[in-house]
Amino acid sequence: MRAARRRRARKYAASRSPVVLLGPRGGGLRLRDVVGELEAEGALSPGARIAAVTAGWRDREANEGLIDPHLADRVVDLELYRRSDRVAEADAELAQAHRASRNRLKALRRAYNLRLQGLIEAHRRLAELRGDEGVLAAERDEALDAIRRLDARHLDRVVEIRSEFEQRMAPGERDAVRLQRREVNARLDGTEAIVLEGGHVSNLLSRLRLFGGRELLAGRPVIARSAGAMVLTERIVLFHDRPPWGEGNPEVFDAGLGIAGGIVALPHASARLALNDRTRGARLAARFAPASCVLLDPGGRIDRAGDRWSGGDAVERLDMAGRRVLFRTAA
Protein backbone atom coordinates (compact mmCIF):
# COMPACT_ATOMS: atom_id res chain seq x y z
CA MET A 1 0.00 0.00 0.00
CA ARG A 2 2.76 2.47 0.90
CA ALA A 3 4.67 1.60 -2.28
CA ALA A 4 1.55 2.27 -4.37
CA ARG A 5 1.09 5.62 -2.65
CA ARG A 6 4.69 6.56 -3.33
CA ARG A 7 4.26 5.70 -7.02
CA ARG A 8 1.13 7.83 -7.24
CA ALA A 9 2.85 10.69 -5.42
CA ARG A 10 5.69 10.69 -7.97
CA LYS A 11 3.17 10.76 -10.81
CA TYR A 12 1.14 13.56 -9.25
CA ALA A 13 4.30 15.61 -8.91
CA ALA A 14 4.51 15.59 -12.72
CA SER A 15 0.79 16.23 -13.27
CA ARG A 16 -1.28 18.32 -10.85
CA SER A 17 -4.63 17.17 -12.26
CA PRO A 18 -4.97 13.44 -11.60
CA VAL A 19 -8.06 11.45 -12.50
CA VAL A 20 -9.44 8.73 -10.22
CA LEU A 21 -12.11 6.32 -11.44
CA LEU A 22 -14.08 4.41 -8.81
CA GLY A 23 -16.51 1.54 -8.97
CA PRO A 24 -19.93 1.71 -7.28
CA ARG A 25 -20.14 2.30 -3.55
CA GLY A 26 -19.06 -0.48 -1.26
CA GLY A 27 -16.07 -2.76 -1.16
CA GLY A 28 -14.49 -0.79 1.69
CA LEU A 29 -13.38 2.11 -0.51
CA ARG A 30 -14.67 5.42 0.81
CA LEU A 31 -14.53 8.81 -0.86
CA ARG A 32 -12.94 10.35 2.24
CA ASP A 33 -10.04 7.88 1.92
CA VAL A 34 -9.43 8.82 -1.72
CA VAL A 35 -9.51 12.52 -0.84
CA GLY A 36 -7.18 11.91 2.09
CA GLU A 37 -4.66 10.17 -0.17
CA LEU A 38 -4.76 13.00 -2.70
CA GLU A 39 -4.05 15.42 0.14
CA ALA A 40 -1.19 13.30 1.48
CA GLU A 41 0.32 13.03 -2.00
CA GLY A 42 0.16 16.76 -2.66
CA ALA A 43 -2.59 16.75 -5.30
CA LEU A 44 -4.96 18.59 -2.92
CA SER A 45 -4.47 21.04 -0.08
CA PRO A 46 -5.48 19.69 3.35
CA GLY A 47 -9.13 20.54 3.97
CA ALA A 48 -9.62 21.78 0.40
CA ARG A 49 -13.15 22.52 -0.76
CA ILE A 50 -14.56 20.07 -3.32
CA ALA A 51 -17.17 20.62 -6.02
CA ALA A 52 -19.68 17.82 -6.61
CA VAL A 53 -21.85 16.83 -9.56
CA THR A 54 -24.76 14.61 -8.57
CA ALA A 55 -26.96 15.28 -11.63
CA GLY A 56 -27.11 11.56 -12.43
CA TRP A 57 -29.46 11.16 -9.47
CA ARG A 58 -31.96 13.61 -10.98
CA ASP A 59 -34.45 14.88 -8.36
CA ARG A 60 -32.32 13.37 -5.57
CA GLU A 61 -29.52 15.73 -6.54
CA ALA A 62 -27.69 17.32 -3.59
CA ASN A 63 -29.58 15.10 -1.10
CA GLU A 64 -27.81 13.99 2.04
CA GLY A 65 -26.05 10.68 1.63
CA LEU A 66 -24.99 11.07 -2.01
CA ILE A 67 -21.60 12.37 -0.89
CA ASP A 68 -19.55 10.97 1.99
CA PRO A 69 -21.02 12.65 5.11
CA HIS A 70 -17.51 13.08 6.54
CA LEU A 71 -16.83 15.51 3.68
CA ALA A 72 -20.18 17.32 3.84
CA ASP A 73 -18.79 20.57 5.24
CA ARG A 74 -16.25 20.74 2.40
CA VAL A 75 -18.49 19.86 -0.55
CA VAL A 76 -20.25 22.36 -2.82
CA ASP A 77 -22.85 20.69 -5.04
CA LEU A 78 -23.06 22.40 -8.44
CA GLU A 79 -26.74 21.37 -8.81
CA LEU A 80 -26.50 20.88 -12.56
CA TYR A 81 -29.76 18.95 -12.84
CA ARG A 82 -31.79 21.67 -11.14
CA ARG A 83 -30.06 24.30 -13.21
CA SER A 84 -30.93 22.48 -16.43
CA ASP A 85 -34.58 22.52 -15.34
CA ARG A 86 -34.34 26.29 -14.85
CA VAL A 87 -32.85 26.64 -18.33
CA ALA A 88 -35.72 24.63 -19.82
CA GLU A 89 -38.28 26.78 -17.99
CA ALA A 90 -36.65 30.01 -19.17
CA ASP A 91 -35.92 28.97 -22.78
CA ALA A 92 -38.79 26.96 -24.29
CA GLU A 93 -37.23 27.06 -27.78
CA LEU A 94 -34.02 25.42 -26.56
CA ALA A 95 -35.96 22.81 -24.57
CA GLN A 96 -38.09 21.91 -27.58
CA ALA A 97 -35.05 21.59 -29.85
CA HIS A 98 -33.35 19.39 -27.28
CA ARG A 99 -36.38 17.08 -27.09
CA ALA A 100 -36.43 16.80 -30.88
CA SER A 101 -32.73 15.93 -30.94
CA ARG A 102 -33.22 13.38 -28.18
CA ASN A 103 -36.04 11.73 -30.15
CA ARG A 104 -33.77 11.45 -33.20
CA LEU A 105 -31.14 9.76 -31.04
CA LYS A 106 -33.72 7.32 -29.66
CA ALA A 107 -34.74 6.32 -33.19
CA LEU A 108 -31.11 5.88 -34.16
CA ARG A 109 -30.46 3.73 -31.08
CA ARG A 110 -33.39 1.41 -31.91
CA ALA A 111 -32.09 0.90 -35.44
CA TYR A 112 -28.53 0.34 -34.22
CA ASN A 113 -29.59 -2.27 -31.67
CA LEU A 114 -31.64 -4.13 -34.25
CA ARG A 115 -28.66 -4.34 -36.59
CA LEU A 116 -26.27 -5.12 -33.73
CA GLN A 117 -28.36 -8.06 -32.57
CA GLY A 118 -28.06 -9.74 -35.95
CA LEU A 119 -24.30 -9.19 -36.21
CA ILE A 120 -23.63 -10.51 -32.71
CA GLU A 121 -25.81 -13.55 -33.32
CA ALA A 122 -23.82 -14.29 -36.49
CA HIS A 123 -20.54 -13.94 -34.60
CA ARG A 124 -21.82 -16.21 -31.80
CA ARG A 125 -22.88 -18.93 -34.21
CA LEU A 126 -19.60 -18.74 -36.11
CA ALA A 127 -17.74 -19.18 -32.81
CA GLU A 128 -19.68 -22.43 -32.25
CA LEU A 129 -19.23 -23.70 -35.81
CA ARG A 130 -16.73 -26.54 -36.26
CA GLY A 131 -14.81 -27.29 -39.43
CA ASP A 132 -11.75 -26.06 -41.29
CA GLU A 133 -10.26 -23.54 -38.87
CA GLY A 134 -8.25 -21.88 -41.64
CA VAL A 135 -11.54 -20.91 -43.27
CA LEU A 136 -13.63 -20.26 -40.15
CA ALA A 137 -11.07 -18.05 -38.39
CA ALA A 138 -11.17 -15.56 -41.26
CA GLU A 139 -14.98 -15.57 -41.23
CA ARG A 140 -15.06 -14.94 -37.49
CA ASP A 141 -12.62 -12.06 -37.90
CA GLU A 142 -14.81 -10.55 -40.61
CA ALA A 143 -17.89 -10.93 -38.41
CA LEU A 144 -16.12 -9.09 -35.60
CA ASP A 145 -14.98 -6.38 -38.00
CA ALA A 146 -18.61 -5.91 -39.06
CA ILE A 147 -19.59 -5.29 -35.42
CA ARG A 148 -16.75 -2.82 -34.97
CA ARG A 149 -17.72 -0.97 -38.16
CA LEU A 150 -21.33 -0.71 -36.97
CA ASP A 151 -20.19 0.57 -33.56
CA ALA A 152 -18.01 3.21 -35.19
CA ARG A 153 -20.69 4.28 -37.66
CA HIS A 154 -23.28 4.53 -34.88
CA LEU A 155 -21.01 6.66 -32.73
CA ASP A 156 -20.33 8.96 -35.69
CA ARG A 157 -24.09 9.39 -36.24
CA VAL A 158 -24.71 10.12 -32.54
CA VAL A 159 -22.03 12.81 -32.57
CA GLU A 160 -23.38 14.20 -35.85
CA ILE A 161 -26.96 14.55 -34.53
CA ARG A 162 -25.78 16.15 -31.31
CA SER A 163 -23.43 18.50 -33.19
CA GLU A 164 -26.27 19.59 -35.47
CA PHE A 165 -28.30 20.57 -32.40
CA GLU A 166 -25.40 22.43 -30.80
CA GLN A 167 -24.48 24.31 -33.99
CA ARG A 168 -28.09 25.30 -34.70
CA MET A 169 -29.05 26.27 -31.15
CA ALA A 170 -25.65 27.39 -29.73
CA PRO A 171 -26.71 26.67 -26.10
CA GLY A 172 -23.67 28.39 -24.61
CA GLU A 173 -24.66 31.68 -26.21
CA ARG A 174 -28.24 31.73 -24.90
CA ASP A 175 -29.09 33.95 -21.95
CA ALA A 176 -30.64 31.25 -19.76
CA VAL A 177 -27.57 29.03 -20.12
CA ARG A 178 -25.15 31.90 -19.61
CA LEU A 179 -26.86 32.84 -16.36
CA GLN A 180 -26.62 29.33 -14.95
CA ARG A 181 -23.02 28.91 -16.13
CA ARG A 182 -22.04 32.09 -14.29
CA GLU A 183 -23.59 30.72 -11.11
CA VAL A 184 -21.82 27.39 -11.58
CA ASN A 185 -18.48 29.19 -12.03
CA ALA A 186 -19.14 31.17 -8.87
CA ARG A 187 -19.67 27.93 -6.95
CA LEU A 188 -16.53 26.44 -8.46
CA ASP A 189 -14.45 29.37 -7.26
CA GLY A 190 -12.18 28.25 -4.44
CA THR A 191 -12.67 24.53 -4.99
CA GLU A 192 -9.68 22.31 -5.78
CA ALA A 193 -11.30 19.08 -7.02
CA ILE A 194 -14.50 17.80 -8.59
CA VAL A 195 -16.37 14.64 -7.65
CA LEU A 196 -18.69 13.09 -10.24
CA GLU A 197 -21.20 10.76 -8.65
CA GLY A 198 -23.05 8.00 -10.49
CA GLY A 199 -26.71 7.46 -11.28
CA HIS A 200 -28.26 7.80 -14.74
CA VAL A 201 -25.39 8.13 -17.21
CA SER A 202 -27.39 9.99 -19.89
CA ASN A 203 -28.67 12.62 -17.47
CA LEU A 204 -25.20 13.11 -16.05
CA LEU A 205 -23.53 13.43 -19.45
CA SER A 206 -26.08 15.84 -20.92
CA ARG A 207 -25.90 18.18 -17.89
CA LEU A 208 -22.12 18.19 -17.93
CA ARG A 209 -22.17 19.11 -21.62
CA LEU A 210 -24.73 21.87 -21.08
CA PHE A 211 -22.54 23.49 -18.44
CA GLY A 212 -19.18 23.29 -20.15
CA GLY A 213 -18.14 19.65 -20.51
CA ARG A 214 -14.37 19.25 -20.38
CA GLU A 215 -13.87 22.95 -19.61
CA LEU A 216 -15.96 22.59 -16.46
CA LEU A 217 -13.57 19.91 -15.18
CA ALA A 218 -10.29 21.36 -16.43
CA GLY A 219 -7.46 22.21 -14.05
CA ARG A 220 -8.67 20.19 -11.06
CA PRO A 221 -8.30 16.60 -9.90
CA VAL A 222 -11.40 14.63 -10.86
CA ILE A 223 -12.79 11.74 -8.82
CA ALA A 224 -15.52 9.91 -10.72
CA ARG A 225 -17.67 7.09 -9.42
CA SER A 226 -19.55 4.47 -11.47
CA ALA A 227 -21.57 6.36 -14.14
CA GLY A 228 -19.31 9.33 -13.41
CA ALA A 229 -16.37 7.20 -14.54
CA MET A 230 -18.24 6.23 -17.71
CA VAL A 231 -18.86 9.82 -18.83
CA LEU A 232 -15.14 10.61 -18.62
CA THR A 233 -14.21 7.95 -21.17
CA GLU A 234 -13.95 8.39 -24.92
CA ARG A 235 -16.77 5.92 -25.65
CA ILE A 236 -19.64 5.10 -23.29
CA VAL A 237 -20.69 1.46 -23.46
CA LEU A 238 -23.98 0.32 -21.92
CA PHE A 239 -24.08 -3.33 -20.96
CA HIS A 240 -26.15 -6.00 -19.25
CA ASP A 241 -25.79 -9.59 -20.40
CA ARG A 242 -28.77 -10.73 -18.31
CA PRO A 243 -31.41 -7.98 -18.19
CA PRO A 244 -34.89 -8.90 -16.88
CA TRP A 245 -36.31 -9.09 -20.42
CA GLY A 246 -33.77 -11.65 -21.71
CA GLU A 247 -30.29 -11.66 -23.20
CA GLY A 248 -28.64 -8.30 -23.78
CA ASN A 249 -25.78 -7.02 -25.90
CA PRO A 250 -23.25 -4.34 -24.91
CA GLU A 251 -23.94 -1.24 -27.00
CA VAL A 252 -22.12 1.97 -27.82
CA PHE A 253 -24.25 4.75 -26.33
CA ASP A 254 -22.38 8.00 -26.92
CA ALA A 255 -19.02 9.68 -26.96
CA GLY A 256 -17.87 10.62 -23.47
CA LEU A 257 -15.84 13.66 -22.50
CA GLY A 258 -12.58 11.96 -23.50
CA ILE A 259 -10.71 12.74 -20.28
CA ALA A 260 -10.18 9.07 -19.39
CA GLY A 261 -8.56 7.88 -22.60
CA GLY A 262 -7.90 4.21 -23.34
CA ILE A 263 -10.56 2.97 -20.89
CA VAL A 264 -13.99 1.37 -21.30
CA ALA A 265 -15.48 1.71 -17.81
CA LEU A 266 -17.77 -1.17 -16.80
CA PRO A 267 -19.29 -0.49 -13.34
CA HIS A 268 -21.10 -3.38 -11.60
CA ALA A 269 -19.34 -5.68 -14.09
CA SER A 270 -19.63 -8.87 -12.01
CA ALA A 271 -23.37 -8.36 -11.60
CA ARG A 272 -24.09 -7.30 -15.17
CA LEU A 273 -21.71 -9.38 -17.32
CA ALA A 274 -21.65 -13.15 -17.85
CA LEU A 275 -17.95 -13.27 -17.02
CA ASN A 276 -17.85 -17.06 -17.11
CA ASP A 277 -18.70 -16.94 -20.84
CA ARG A 278 -15.28 -16.56 -22.48
CA THR A 279 -16.73 -16.09 -25.96
CA ARG A 280 -18.78 -13.09 -24.86
CA GLY A 281 -15.87 -11.68 -22.88
CA ALA A 282 -13.43 -12.06 -25.76
CA ARG A 283 -15.87 -10.41 -28.16
CA LEU A 284 -16.35 -7.47 -25.78
CA ALA A 285 -12.60 -6.97 -25.33
CA ALA A 286 -11.93 -7.24 -29.07
CA ARG A 287 -14.75 -4.84 -30.03
CA PHE A 288 -13.23 -1.98 -28.09
CA ALA A 289 -9.51 -2.77 -28.32
CA PRO A 290 -7.01 -1.21 -27.90
CA ALA A 291 -8.97 0.39 -25.04
CA SER A 292 -9.04 -1.72 -21.85
CA CYS A 293 -12.41 -3.06 -20.70
CA VAL A 294 -12.06 -2.37 -16.96
CA LEU A 295 -14.29 -4.25 -14.51
CA LEU A 296 -15.17 -1.56 -11.95
CA ASP A 297 -16.87 -3.49 -9.19
CA PRO A 298 -17.49 -2.03 -5.72
CA GLY A 299 -14.12 -1.19 -4.16
CA GLY A 300 -12.43 -0.87 -7.55
CA ARG A 301 -10.19 2.10 -8.27
CA ILE A 302 -7.83 3.12 -11.04
CA ASP A 303 -5.71 6.28 -11.13
CA ARG A 304 -4.28 8.29 -13.96
CA ALA A 305 -1.47 10.78 -13.60
CA GLY A 306 0.52 11.82 -16.61
CA ASP A 307 -0.12 9.41 -19.47
CA ARG A 308 -0.57 6.15 -17.58
CA TRP A 309 -3.28 4.37 -15.65
CA SER A 310 -2.61 2.19 -12.63
CA GLY A 311 -4.80 -0.06 -10.52
CA GLY A 312 -4.41 -2.28 -7.48
CA ASP A 313 -5.32 -5.91 -6.90
CA ALA A 314 -9.03 -5.06 -6.61
CA VAL A 315 -9.36 -4.14 -10.32
CA GLU A 316 -9.49 -6.50 -13.27
CA ARG A 317 -9.90 -6.14 -17.03
CA LEU A 318 -10.92 -8.52 -19.79
CA ASP A 319 -8.10 -9.86 -21.94
CA MET A 320 -8.50 -10.87 -25.59
CA ALA A 321 -9.33 -14.43 -24.57
CA GLY A 322 -12.24 -13.22 -22.42
CA ARG A 323 -10.44 -13.94 -19.15
CA ARG A 324 -10.43 -11.73 -16.05
CA VAL A 325 -6.88 -10.51 -15.44
CA LEU A 326 -5.44 -7.86 -13.14
CA PHE A 327 -5.56 -4.40 -14.66
CA ARG A 328 -2.27 -3.17 -13.17
CA THR A 329 -1.09 -0.47 -15.63
CA ALA A 330 -1.98 0.82 -19.09
CA ALA A 331 -0.86 3.70 -21.28
Rank of each mutant, 00 (worst) to 15 (best):
M1V: 05
R7S: 13
K11N: 08
A13I: 01
S15G: 07
R16L: 07
S17C: 08
L21T: 06
L22I: 04
G23A: 12
R25M: 06
L29K: 13
L29Y: 13
R30G: 07
L31F: 07
L31R: 10
R32T: 05
D33W: 05
L38F: 13
G47R: 15
A48T: 07
G56W: 05
R58N: 08
N63G: 06
A72G: 09
D73Q: 13
L78T: 07
R82L: 09
R83P: 01
V87G: 08
A97P: 02
R102Q: 09
R102E: 12
N103R: 11
R104A: 14
L105I: 05
L105S: 02
A107E: 11
R110Y: 06
R110K: 06
A111T: 11
L116C: 13
Q117A: 09
Q117Y: 07
Q117K: 05
G118K: 09
A122F: 00
R125N: 12
A127G: 06
E133N: 11
E133S: 07
V135P: 01
A137P: 00
D141H: 13
D141K: 15
L144E: 13
R149N: 14
L150G: 10
D151P: 03
A152G: 11
L155R: 15
D156P: 01
R157D: 05
V158T: 11
V158R: 14
E160G: 01
E160R: 05
I161H: 01
I161N: 00
R162C: 00
S163F: 00
F165T: 01
G172S: 08
E173T: 14
E183P: 01
V184N: 08
V184E: 11
A193L: 06
V195I: 15
G199F: 12
S202T: 11
R207G: 03
L208R: 03
E215P: 00
L217E: 00
V222E: 08
V222D: 02
G228F: 04
V231Q: 08
V231T: 10
V237L: 06
L238M: 13
F239L: 14
W245P: 01
A255P: 03
G258L: 00
G262E: 09
G262N: 10
P267L: 02
L273D: 08
R280F: 05
A282Y: 09
R283W: 09
R283Y: 01
G299A: 04
D303S: 04
R308E: 11
W309I: 04
W309M: 11
W309N: 12
G312C: 02
E316W: 06
R317D: 07
L318A: 13
D319Q: 04
L326V: 03
T329E: 15
T329Q: 13
A330S: 15
A330F: 10
